[in-house]
């Protein structure tokens, strides 16, 4: 074997080894394009399906948007109509407000006049109320005097009746004496008149102080009250009556005017307004 043959054999072997190694390395590092293709194909199918679903969803959403747009347009039209109606109502309301404002201004002037009239009437009422109270007080005093005069009149009448009876009795005695004198009887005999001797009138007994006096409310006029008991029952001025209704305390009454069978006073410690028929007592 020649040297050239040996060299060629060695080089052939070396290059064969290098080429085989490079080839193995190249094939070992080569990509699996089929696997890539399958993966990409699967991914493409999935994406196509997803695209189809998205397209359907897009169409659905587009339809919904179209419906919503239609509804919104209808609602917008109705709102526009409502807006126009409201604007018309607002204009009408403003006109009414102006009219009412003018009326209010006129009524304000009228009310101012009324207020002045009411003030004048209130002042007149207060003055009249004071005059009325004075008149009531005067009336109570007059009633008291009238009762006193009536009592005096009754007393005078009783005295007059007594005197008339006395006169009759004396006339009867005189007539009897004249009859006896005419009959000639000289004996004197005591003449007994037919008319009995009457008692003179005397005032009623006044109840002693400190006793319980009870009566009823017969008249109520604002701050004045009239009771059914008077001086004949022992009532005096500045006495205090307690007005009750059942077991409930209503107020106190300080007596200011006393009549024979009635008295009047002012209210005090008012818990509740008394009424006609409530009980008045000096002791609770």
């Amino acid at each position: 074997m020649s040297i050239l043959t040996k060299i060629v054999a060695v080089l052939l072997s070396v290059f064969s080894l290098l080429l085989a190694g490079m080839f193995v390395v190249f094939v070992g590092n080569a990509n699996n394009y089929r696997q890539w293709y399958e993966e990409e194909k699967t991914l493409n199918i999935a994406l196509q399906a997803d695209l189809t679903i998205k397209g359907e969803q897009y169409n659905v959403q587009v339809n919904k948007c179209a419906e919503l747009d239609k509804k919104m347009r209808q609602e917008l039209q109705s709102l526009e109509a409502g807006k126009n109606q409201l604007a018309y109502d607002l204009h009408k309301s403003e006109q009414l407000a102006q009219k009412f404002q003018a009326d209010a201004d006129s009524w304000k002037g009228v009310m101012t006049g009324f207020e002045q009239s009411v003030r004048i009437l209130q002042a007149s009422l207060s003055q009249t109320q004071g005059q009325l109270d004075k008149a009531r007080t005067q009336g109570i005093k007059d009633q008291k005097e009238l009762n006193q005069i009536t009592a005096d009149l009754y007393e005078k009448i009783v005295q007059l009746q007594s005197l008339e009876a006395e006169r009759r009795r004396l006339l009867e005695q005189k007539k009897e004496l004249e009859n006896r004198a005419a009959a000639g009887g000289a004996y004197a005999q005591k003449v007994i008149p037919v008319t009995p001797l009457n008692r003179t009138a005397s005032p009623a007994a006044i109840a002693p102080a400190g006793t319980d006096v009870k009566g009823l409310v017969v008249e109520v006029q604002q701050n004045l009250i009239t009771l059914s008991v008077g001086s004949a029952d022992g009532v005096k001025e500045r006495m205090v009556f307690h007005i009750t209704r059942g077991d409930r305390f209503l107020c106190d009454v300080i007596v200011t005017n006393v009549d024979i069978n009635r008295c009047a006073g002012v209210l005090d410690l008012i818990q509740q307004s008394p009424q006609v028929g409530d009980t008045a007592s000096t002791r609770l």
């Binding site: 054999a9 060695v10 052939l12 072997s13 070396v14 064969s16 080894l17 085989a20 190694g21």
Partner: peptide, 8 residues
């Protein structure tokens, strides 16, 4: 050597 190259 040649056999080794052929095997490779």
């Amino acid at each position: 050597i040649l056999a080794l190259a052929c095997l490779a």
